[in-house]
Design a protein around this nucleic acid. Structure first.
Lengths: 183, 183, 183, 183
DNA sequence: TATGAATGAGTCTTCATTCAT
DNA sequence: AATGAATGAAGACTCATTCAT
């Protein structure tokens, strides 16, 4: 039975999102193949993680495309981006914790590309006077990533309902915790 | 040379905050002792991590005490809490990623106590009409932790100046990214 | 494309002569076929090595035939034998290092046959007073093999010119390193 | 029980001289330690083989010193050298077959030093008219090594008595197979 | 017949952990 | 109390081999 690389990646992403430390054996078993087969498709653990990183980059960039974040109101663009990102938040949370994803120039370029596009949205929002300027773009991006990852974990641990997640992240990120019209 | 448990804990906290996957050997070396000595002070890796967890709980609870978060304006209380947490954000970021910190009843109780106290602040803020009620307390707490951890990593990676961190976290968490008075 | 067993054997002999530890994969690739195909022609690695052994036996016996080592002056017979062996010295050097070539009775008989014929030459030479008797036939045979193999390696490593090899081996083996007419 | 590196090396040399393909596990067991211990002393298989190479270099150089090969009659010097080399012929035979012993500059220099010293002896012998000049020094050296290794294997396989080995090698190498005074 | 795909078995290697001094 | 030495257990990786097309 021909196993598609893609299938292995999905299985790995699923499992690693839950157990960051899962062994190659566990991953292989989760994908329904032997360790050796997994190794045939990915030269080693590092190669697998890198491939997952590329999958992540691909998914995010597709999300950025779909969300058309360079069009329209920055706030709405950001909401659309979050709507795209939420379904894969768990996976992104995993990638967020991996420290070796910048190992290759190729990967590095991928993340830089994403940072650049999200950064452009943030800067555009600031330029249009919609986003605050006392918060640096770099920090806003970091915070965005962190909240997405946090929502992923919260959902996984059952502290947050999946359907509420996009709203929660968007509202907190955009509006903050303070009541707008305090009594 | 008599080695104090505390010294080992600090060294472990320092190193693990930077390299989550550091081995016992690396930790021991960082503390300037042999692996065996490290093991004599902490029954095993798990025990060490648990001890770090307790250290974290202790530090956070001291911070909560110092910040007197149950007094005064909730917003100011939260700022005081953040001011206390920031200096150890890197360490908290490490603890945040450890999934085994609830292994013992004792630990579990510690974290529950903290969650309870922070939760009380959040609920108080909501009751007083200062914090929004459409964001669940659980999510606000998760977001608080996530942003503290994120600021810790951002500082570590040089994307955020240490002195800016408290402001950035507080402002984003409280006020959100949106400009209050859009043009 | 119909692959001939012979072709695979040659490729294997070539490669293994250079890299004794070459994997089945490397051998298959060197022969321009897939691993599976190689396995279809040779039940396993052992079978392949055995087949190479048989090839070696065949080649040596043909050489012994061609050289007519049981005829004429023993010295000249030995030179003729060496002339035959040199071109495949690299391959013989490989076989020389394989410890499993006596695994089957068939193989064992083959090598014994060769030993017997070469031994006969040596003993004939000793009987005729041409070869020294203080060197045992067994050792002379071993030395013969060793020098052939050594010349194979020396040629492979570029320390010995292929055209010089037969002369070098024959002269050293027959005449030794000492000058016959020292000043 | 403190295991000395030297002890491990000896055990490894012994075993590998007999079974070139022995696994780290077998080697460890032969030395009476666990695999992990072997790894603690030698970072990996390659490191072990390199260390064995250095041991070989050391032994040979000591032998060269003891034999004082740059003094007196070249023939006698060579005999002394052989007398030194014979006891470790089995080990040298193993090293002779390892293709990775030139991996480091340090090793490379070691072998070059040995080649140089033995080469000097050969050239001296030729200059003094004792050794033949129609055999290149390089080939004489190769042949010397090959015959030593061959004698090692012959002894191991029981075809040659250990006490005869030095004589057999020296006589063949120096005098060749031909009877000096043929009838 | 030839091959891409899959795998079991074995090896190397690294840990956390224990022991003897 | 501290440590160098030793180890069992677990993971990564490679290889020869088999299977399904």
């Amino acid at each position: 039975m021909a196993v598609h690389r893609e299938h292995l990646l999905r299985a790995a992403a699923d499992l690693l999102s839950r157990r960051t430390t899962a062994s190659m054996d566990e991953i292989a078993r989760a994908a329904g193949v032997s360790r050796a087969t997994l190794h045939r498709h990915f030269a080693g653990r590092d190669a697998l993680v890198l491939a997952l990183g590329e999958l992540g980059i691909r998914q995010i960039e597709e999300g950025l495309d779909t969300a058309r974040i360079d069009e329209g109101d920055p706030t709405e663009a950001l909401r659309r981006l979050l709507a795209e990102a939420m379904p894969v938040a768990g996976f992104l949370a995993f990638l967020y914790g991996e420290n070796q994803l910048y190992a290759t120039d190729h990967m590095d370029a991928g993340w830089a590309r994403i940072d650049e596009r999200v950064g452009a949205l943030v800067r555009r929002g600031q330029a249009e006077g919609v986003f605050r300027r006392d918060l640096s773009p770099a920090w806003l991006i970091d915070a965005l990533y962190a909240l997405i990852a946090a929502s992923g974990w919260s959902v996984q641990d059952g502290r947050l309902a999946p359907k509420d997640a996009p709203h929660m992240v968007a509202e907190l990120l955009l509006g903050g915790a303070l009541e707008r019209n305090p009594r």
